[in-house]
Each structure stands twice: as structure tokens, then as C-alpha cells.
Design a protein around this nucleic acid. Structure first.
Lengths: 144, 144
DNA sequence: CTACTTGCAAACTCTTTGCACCATA
DNA sequence: TATGGTGCAAAGAGTTTGCAAGTAG
């Protein structure tokens, strides 16, 4: 599961793919890079980013599905925006969503799942935390 | 925001609606009741529940949108299943999702958002926590 | 009585699938 | 070279919208 010590904290897309037994194709590499470049892109945004390379929307969907099953990326449902994706290489973290401006940020310092009352026998694979609310900027200056 | 002390812990659908300035119509009441009866229904399941009363799918969609904006219900995106909804009248709690059998359960004992490193000035409206993994039953007896 | 809701049906958008060609290992 | 991935185009689902009739306040 966990890469052996000595591995870089930011493995290359190729390394990520090879580690899961997936082929390192142009499309997959580009999509992982786009996923890292954008904060929390939608499928559409991701496609816009890789379309110049000749990558089809279909491939974006198929690749995201593959990567999601492989535990490389995670999907979050954002009201008004729809599905967004993010790479799962960071340490466990939460997401902070401003319902006013729609901005989604990472939030560190989430207590480990062990702190919660997870029933005995349930094996935790991943924890997703989203905090909804209004960011300081939007409280001070509501968007037009 | 918070109902005055003395209010029942389980306000009736009508009370919930009136409190937000929404009309207490047959369709809305039925949908809130169905939402409570089912654990974490999809739009489709919800519609099946209220269809016998002559409530159209369109109305289910429109009502859920209204209720979501009013902070009465919350949507969770479940992989493989899609959007599911739950009423937000319980105390803050997490969701436990078994990726094998797809069962979604409530999980109490989630630390308050204040424990996390939410930036100053961000006002928290709601916290959504989902723990992904495999439940004990599925580890012992993988589904067919 | 007036404004808000609903049902019906059609329109749309997003997502998935089949098949032939191409690229990775 | 063999297996698996990709593009294109079309099919399929799920979701949204317009409008006339019905209902809560």
C-alpha cells in the first residue's frame, strides 16, 4: 500500500501509474498533471486543460474512473458545481467550501478516523471531510 | 436559526417548512417524511416512495433543491450510486460507507468543526464527513 | 384573492458504450 | 508482438424548464 521510505513525496504521474499496474499513457499523465495544477477541477475543466493535447472527453471520463478505482483520485460532490476531483497524494485533509463564492480549499489538521467511533471490524480506506460555510472575503464583500 | 428551547427534537414536516417560510404542501410533507423513513435515499428511491401519492419526479427534484437551499436536507455523492439525500435535523454526524456492499450508515461522535483548523472569519454552516471502507460483514463474507 | 406549487411533456446536458486504430510494455 | 488504451460518434440516463391548472396562506 504505502510506498517504501525514500520515495519522493511527489511521485511523478508515471510512478503513480506504474505503482498500480496501470500503463503510463500520454493521456493519463496529462490528466494527473492537470489534476495537480487545478485546485479541484470538474470534468469539464479537466477536459479543457488537456483538450489541446488532443485528449477526448471520453478519455477524461474513463481515466477518472480508472484512477478513482485505483485510489489515485477522489470525487467530491459540490452543490451547484457538480462532481469535482482531486488527487489523493496529500496527507488526509478536509475541504473547506464557501457556499457564496464556490471556492473549495484544502484544510489541514483533520483528526484521524481512529478518533471517531468507527465500529470494530470496519476497515477505513479513506475519509472525506467537507466544511460548508461562508469565507471571510464573502462575508466582508458579498459577490456581485 | 436555532429553534427556541421547548421545541420538540423531531419537529413535524410542516413545522420545518413554516420555520423557513416555505409553504407546507402535500408534496413537500410527503417528501420530508419519505426522507426520514428511508436511510439515505436516492432521488429515484424517493420518487418511488411518494409516487403513489401522485407526486411527479419533477416535483421531487424541485423540492429537494428547495430544501437543500433552505438547509433542511443535504446531498452526499456516493460512488456507484450517485446522489443521496438525508434530512439535516439530527445532531452533526458522519457517514460510514461500505464500498463493498454500498451500505451507508450514520456514525455519531464526530468532533465539532471547531476542533479543526478552520480559518478565522470562516463561518461554518455544516460539516459533512464520510468514512469510506469495508464493513465487518463484507470482510467476513464478500458479497456474491 | 394572489402568489407560490405542481404536473405534464419536451428539451438538454452529462455520461456511457461500441468499434476500429494506436501505443505501451 | 500482444494487451490494453484512445478517439470518434451515437446511444442512454438523469435532470431541468415552460406553461397552464391547482392550492396554501
Amino acid at each position: 500500500m504505502t510506498p517504501p521510505p525514500g520515495e519522493p513525496a511527489h511521485p511523478t504521474p508515471t510512478e503513480i501509474l506504474r505503482a498500480r499496474g496501470l500503463r503510463a499513457t500520454t493521456a493519463r499523465i496529462a490528466i494527473i498533471e492537470a489534476l495537480r495544477a487545478a485546485e479541484h477541477p470538474t470534468v469539464e475543466a479537466l477536459h479543457r486543460a488537456v483538450a489541446p493535447l488532443g485528449i477526448a472527453l471520453t478519455t477524461v471520463y474513463r481515466t477518472l474512473e480508472t484512477l478513482e478505482h485505483a485510489g489515485v483520485v477522489w470525487a467530491i460532490h459540490v452543490p451547484e458545481t457538480g462532481r469535482t476531483y482531486h488527487v489523493g497524494t496529500h496527507p488526509p485533509h478536509a475541504h473547506l467550501l464557501c457556499e457564496s463564492c464556490g471556492r473549495l480549499e484544502d484544510l489541514e489538521g483533520v483528526p484521524p478516523a481512529a478518533d471517531w467511533a468507527v465500529p470494530e471490524g470496519f476497515s477505513v480506506a479513506h475519509v472525506q471531510v467537507t466544511v460548508f460555510g461562508t469565507c471571510a472575503a464573502c462575508r466582508d464583500a458579498p459577490p456581485a
